[in-house]
Design a protein around this nucleic acid. Structure first.
Length: 643
DNA sequence: GCAAGGTC
């Protein structure tokens, strides 16, 4: 019997073929340079038994969804809203023909198709695409699906011997998303472009796109911009107590922090002065540690790259992609922050010993300092955390590759070493009726910090000796005054965190959405505090106008808000659970968006007017006042760390 | 000329 196995990408096909064949595998070229057919024998057990196996792959999605050509000639006719119910068809784009024909050819001589795509929703859908192509060539082919969550040998062999069925509900859930993104994206892009180009100026040649991810991304930037712009500082007051001892000035901070009522602070402060003597009510010395970082996910990788490597998320991803293709690092698109127990991490540490910069640290881990990495709470059940595979000497990498590789390698070694250790001293005093505290830390063992220069432990102050119960008169006691300061503009790391918390995009696409709103001139970047500062995102007048315009027009559903994407995700889940169907979701969502479209058309004036005064200003330096809608909308999304 | 999602 002959079995055709198809994975989502070559790296999985290759790894699975290695495991199943025990290394006795022949790799054959296909009509596509990225795709190989791996041929070997494997005993599946009952009922297939010993089989001739071809293991091959696709390269992500195989098909595309398109409108008929008569809808594409002119963006004005047929009117964009016709795209809400125009026919759509599934086809194989030119670039994927060779991949499809490889599957067809192999399927003709196979009795079974065994699908090995990633075990996530998109992977299930790709499995569905593969099944269609295979069935077209061989209508009687038996179709099975492998369930696997990592590519460890034993796990893969178990999955190979326990074929399951493709989950059609998951396939349908993705079909619903695909169709909605296409219809709504195209319809609103054409609507915006048609109607705002006529305002003239730089707009007349621009494409004004709408997308269910790019608009919420823009919404975050605009939201923060208005928070900064409309910030009103509030004065506050506090009490500072300091005491000099052993030539060291120890500052005690007030347990209440600060209060916004000056009179209350005056009263509390006067009680301190009247008491005159402060009393030591707690002296605590205890070991403390600074935790080593978690195994590296794509999101963390991008956030760190924008902070420490001075690259954009999109640049960092493209460099990581190259390092992956050359075999230096593992697959760079992963949500997993825990290593599988079965992985030989010590062997990976050993690979790093040749390096002149971190080699001796790696050697020390191999010699016994190795510690199992922390286990995060995320697992995409498809890919391990990003880690170095083989050693890459600086001479074989270009400048950006060197920096990314160094970060990935150091991060991995940090994960495999020990937390930094220190001793914390906490002193609490009572002064009047108020409590004040001083905190000091001395670092005893740097451990992972030695290999991970991106972090430091700054609290290296040792406090002088204070004894429980002792009384002293502080050398300084004063009332302080300050005011609240505005938030800063979003950095790329902030933006990525917001997108993640609100489910906008995936690990593989978040950086692209950010790049998209830059390319569209909806936002621009600016270096905080000069050329070497952090990059921050500020909306253009156009970006503000688009978000503000939709906020003002649509009372029920504003296109700039991220919960629409959340809704889509919930609906996809409901399709998977069988609580609804693709058809029902499409109908419901399209009705909803049709309403937004109609409202937008009726109130086109709002969108155009909000833009009008600012055209001469070259798209920048916009002064808009905060609207009521905007103020209400501010807290309608999830902040990173919430929940 | 237009989406978001895979992937190279």
């Amino acid at each position: 019997m002959k079995v055709l196995c198809v994975a989502e990408k070559n790296s999985i096909a290759k790894a699975v073929a290695e495991h199943m064949s025990g290394g006795r595998v022949a790799a054959e070229n296909t009509g596509n340079r990225y795709i190989k057919n791996y041929k070997f024998n494997f005993d599946f057990g009952q009922p297939w038994g010993r089989c001739n196996v071809t293991m091959t792959c696709v390269s992500g999605h195989l098909t595309e969804l398109t409108f008929p050509s008569e809808y594409n000639a002119d963006w004005k006719y047929p009117a964009p809203d016709r795209l809400f119910n125009a026919p759509v068809s599934v086809s194989i784009p030119e670039g994927n023909r060779t991949i499809a024909s490889n599957i067809e050819q192999e399927a003709r001589h196979s009795q079974a198709l065994f699908i090995w795509t990633d075990c996530d929703l998109e992977g299930e859908h790709i499995g569905g695409e593969i099944r269609e192509v295979a069935r077209k060539a061989n209508s009687r082919i038996e179709v099975k699906r492998a369930r696997f969550s990592n590519i460890e040998r034993a796990h893969i062999l178990a999955a190979a011997r326990r074929p399951t069925a493709l989950d059609d509900k998951q396939v349908e859930a993705v079909n619903a998303r695909l169709e909605l993104d296409l219809r709504i994206g195209f319809a609103f892009t054409r609507f915006l472009t048609n109607n705002l180009r006529s305002l003239g100026g730089p707009l007349s040649s621009m494409v004004l796109s709408y997308g269910s991810c790019q608009f919420p991304t823009l919404g975050f930037v605009v939201d923060r911009y208005f928070r900064v712009k409309n910030f009103v500082p509030e004065p506050f007051w506090g009490i500072k107590v300091a005491h000099e001892r052993e030539n060291q000035n120890v500052t005690f901070s007030w347990a209440r922090g600060h209060l916004f009522d000056r009179a209350s602070v005056i009263i509390l402060f006067e009680r301190c002065l009247v008491a005159k003597m402060a009393k030591v009510t707690k002296v605590q010395e205890k070991p403390t540690s600074k935790w080593k970082p978690l195994p590296l996910t794509t999101l963390e990788f991008q956030k760190n790259a924008t902070r420490f490597l001075r690259m954009t998320g999109a640049e960092a991803m493209s460099v990581a992609e190259g390092l992956y293709q050359k075999g230096f690092i593992s697959y760079p698109r992963t949500e997993t922050d825990r290593f599988d127990k079965g992985m030989n991490l010590r062997a990976l540490c050993e690979k790093q010993t040749p390096d002149t910069r971190w080699g001796s640290f790696a050697q020390n881990l191999v010699n016994g300092a190795f510690q199992q990495p922390r286990q995060g709470r995320h697992d995409d059940k498809a890919h391990p955390p990003i880690h170095p595979i083989t050693y890459a000497a600086p001479s074989v990498l270009n400048a950006n590759e060197q920096r990314v590789y160094e970060f990935v390698a150091r991060r991995f070694l940090a994960c495999c070493s020990e937390d930094a250790k220190g001793m914390a001293t906490d002193i609490e005093i009572t002064y009047g009726d108020e409590i004040f505290g001083a905190h000091g830390v001395i670092v005893l063992e740097r451990n992972y910090l030695d290999v991970y220069p991106y972090e430091n432990w700054t609290g290296t102050t040792m406090l002088p000796k204070f004894t429980l119960g002792e009384q002293f008169e502080p050398t300084e006691a004063m009332m302080t005054e300050g005011k609240t300061s505005p938030p800063s503009y979003l950095t790329e790391a902030d933006l990525l965190a917001l997108m993640d918390a609100n489910g906008i995009g995936t690990d593989a696409t978040m950086a692209e959405h950010i790049k998209k709103i830059l390319d569209r001139k909806y936002v621009f970047t600016h270096q905080r505090g000069g050329a070497r500062g952090l990059t921050e995102f500020i909306p253009s007048a156009l970006g503000c106008a688009l978000i503000e315009g939709f906020d003002r027009m649509n009372f029920e559903t504003s296109l700039g808000k991220p919960f629409l994407r959340k809704e889509m995700e919930l609906k996809m889940k409901a399709i998977c659970n069988g609580r609804t169907t693709k058809q029902a979701v499409l109908q419901e969502s399209l009705t909803q968006y049709r309403q937004v479209y109609d409202q937008s058309q009726e109130q086109l004036g709002v969108l155009r007017a909000v833009r009008k005064p600012h055209i001469p200003r070259n798209g920048m330096g916009l002064e808009l006042t905060e609207t009521n809608h905007h103020r209400q909308a501010c807290r309608q999304y999830v902040f990173p760390g919430q929940n």
